[in-house]
């Protein structure tokens, strides 16, 4: 059997971790919002960012995959390439499932329950859900992928270069961000940047982020190929 497939099957044995726990986390955030919404009786819709907890979970999964499953698989005679491909397949399935689930809840929120009867916008967010249904699917799919590989990349970077270099990486990144924002202020670019973002739709932002996701993936693959147990 194809050994990338074995890695996928290894992950699939952890159904709870992929398909149940993230939704328990997200739904508990939802229930809290529901209670708050019920007690406030606002005129306007209450928009929350509780859905972000799912995407943060995906980020953490990226880190856990590398710290726990990579040394396990490598020790059980799995190639690095197969581990990467199996992980990619797994996250593709989990992301696809997630975007479907979010769409179903979003439909329930707007069309079935009239915002759960308490004016709560939890799954159907303005801006994100302005587009067609397939745009919504794509947006959540790419975002989940993005978060996972960001975590995977950081985890693998840490495995490859150890804590010191990971620390240096973060310092370097914040330095770059700091210098960039200083330059923006100095040359008065903020207005333009703000206007550019206002012009974007959820779809165009997603498309803009695609190259970034690809860079994460490529860098993750490169790091995986030379990582050690």
């Amino acid at each position: 059997m194809n050994r990338s497939g074995l890695v996928l099957r290894m992950f699939m044995r952890e159904r709870m971790a992929w398909f149940v726990i993230p939704w328990l986390v997200t739904l508990s955030s939802f229930v809290i919002n529901l209670i708050i919404g019920g007690s406030l009786h606002e005129e306007q819709n209450m928009v929350t960012g509780g859905l972000a907890s799912f995407f943060i979970y995906m980020f953490v999964m990226g880190i856990i995959i590398v710290s726990q499953f990579f040394p396990f698989a490598l020790g059980f005679s799995i190639r690095r390439t197969d581990f990467f491909l199996g992980s990619t397949a797994m996250i593709a399935i989990a992301s696809a499932a997630a975007s479907l689930i979010i769409m179903l809840f979003s439909y329930a929120e707007t069309d079935l329950t009239d915002h759960w009867g308490v004016q709560l916008q939890f799954f159907n967010l303005p801006f994100v859900h302005d587009g067609a249904w397939y745009v919504q699917l794509l947006v959540h799919f790419v975002l989940a992928l993005h978060m996972f590989f960001a975590g995977y990349f950081i985890g693998m970077f840490n495995r490859r270069f150890r804590a010191t270099w990971t620390f240096i990486l973060f310092i370097a990144l914040s330095l770059v961000a700091g210098i960039a924002s200083m330059l923006c202020t100095r040359f008065g670019w903020w207005d333009e940047i703000g206007r550019w973002f206002l012009d974007q739709t959820a779809l165009s932002l997603t498309l803009w982020s695609l190259p970034l996701v690809l860079i994460y993936m490529l860098a993750s693959y490169k790091l995986t190929r030379t990582a050690t147990a």
Binding site: L6, R9, M10, R13, F69, F72, G75, F76, S77, I78
Partner: peptide
């Protein structure tokens, strides 16, 4: 696939059961 290396420092996913580990070994 022809090589099995059992080492003292082998890591296993912490939340996995022994049965999961053996099932994976059976596949690999």
């Amino acid at each position: 696939s022809q090589l099995c290396f059992i080492k003292e420092s082998q890591k296993y996913p912490e939340s996995s059961k022994i049965a999961d580990v053996l099932a994976f070994a059976a596949m690999t």
